[in-house]
């Protein structure tokens, strides 16, 4: 009897241990590059090459102010913040309203609009880079942050609307109907009732869109020429030389560039996870 109990316990523990082991491996895979970057940012130029994987023998904290000054990161942080928040300021309201309309209103072409969203997600950005550049040039927006805001927003609309559609679909239609019976117009039902309930979806969207806009390099390097308008990913290139790269300084700059995203994610973490799983099961 006791043998059976022990065996039963063992068989229930084994899968749990395996799953924890798997999660630990995944966590190491995900976190190690970050840790390696942070450790590398505290090494001297010489130590970086002699002690690639280990802890810094003598932490070089001055790498951070040096990188900040040398890379002119202050203005680049500001530019990236303007572009990221500008993109979010357009994307969040536009996609929320669009998703609400697609999910809760019955209008001709609704399926077509939804299909167009999927098409928008499927087209890779590289394919549209040249036409986008051409349009930006024709609009006279080359070398402006507004161009980045508009293009990043346009790129984000399809996926973000799709994400929000899934979120609104997971909310019971009766909640919106109750709001309309209680005195709301369509818009006030959206604003006062549905949008607050879609907060996890908004948080997930903010993390996705914000991260993409903050990290985007290719288009920013095409459109922005003036160093005073460069965003961080473009500015980081200045740390790499033709013959030598100052890795500790680059890593210090990268670490600083990563911090706002980490902060954004940690702030929105709870909502973010709820947003990703929202609509997965019937409420």
């Amino acid at each position: 009897m006791s043998t059976m109990v022990t065996e039963g316990r063992r068989s229930s523990i084994a899968p749990r241990v395996a799953s924890y082991l798997l999660m630990a491996i995944m966590a190491v895979l995900a976190l190690y590059p970050l840790v390696w970057m942070a450790l590398g940012s505290l090494k001297s130029g010489g130590e970086f090459y002699t002690n690639i994987w280990g802890l810094p023998a003598d932490p070089q904290w001055r790498n951070f102010p040096d990188a900040w000054v040398r890379g002119g990161l202050g203005i680049k942080f500001l530019n990236s913040a303007i572009v990221t928040f500008g993109t979010l300021a357009i994307t969040l309201p536009v996609t929320s309203i669009a998703a609400y309309a697609i999910t809760s209103m019955d209008f001709r072409g609704r399926s077509l609009a939804y299909g167009a969203l999927l098409l928008g997600i499927m087209i890779p950005f590289g394919v549209t880079a040249i036409p986008v550049f051409s349009v930006i040039a024709q609009l006279g927006l080359l070398n402006t942050r507004l161009a980045l805001v508009l293009v990043y927003s346009a790129q984000a609309v399809a996926f973000s609307t799709f994400l929000m559609c899934a979120f609104f679909q997971s909310l019971p239609a009766e909640i919106e109907e109750a709001a309309r019976l209680e005195g709301c117009t369509r818009f006030s039902a959206f604003w006062r009732v549905m949008l607050p309930l879609a907060r996890p979806g908004l948080a997930a969207q903010a993390v996705f869109v914000g991260t993409t806009a903050w990290n985007e390099y290719f288009l920013a390097s095409l459109i922005i020429r003036d160093p005073a308008r460069e965003t961080i990913p473009v500015g980081l290139v200045s740390f790499t030389g033709r013959y030598a790269t100052d890795y500790p300084a680059l890593f210090a700059a990268l670490t600083m560039a990563t911090l706002p995203l980490l902060a954004l994610y940690l702030l929105a973490q709870k909502q973010f996870v709820a947003g990703l799983t929202g609509g997965a099961v019937k409420g």
Partner: peptide, 27 residues
């Protein structure tokens, strides 16, 4: 719906989850 002067009670209650009972009733 808001102009008809009717109130409706739904099968799944359709309460507003982000509001308190007080706010729900007074909405």
């Amino acid at each position: 719906p808001r102009d008809r002067g009717v109130s409706m009670v739904f099968q799944n209650y359709a309460l507003f989850p982000h509001m308190t009972v007080r706010d729900n009733i007074g909405f």
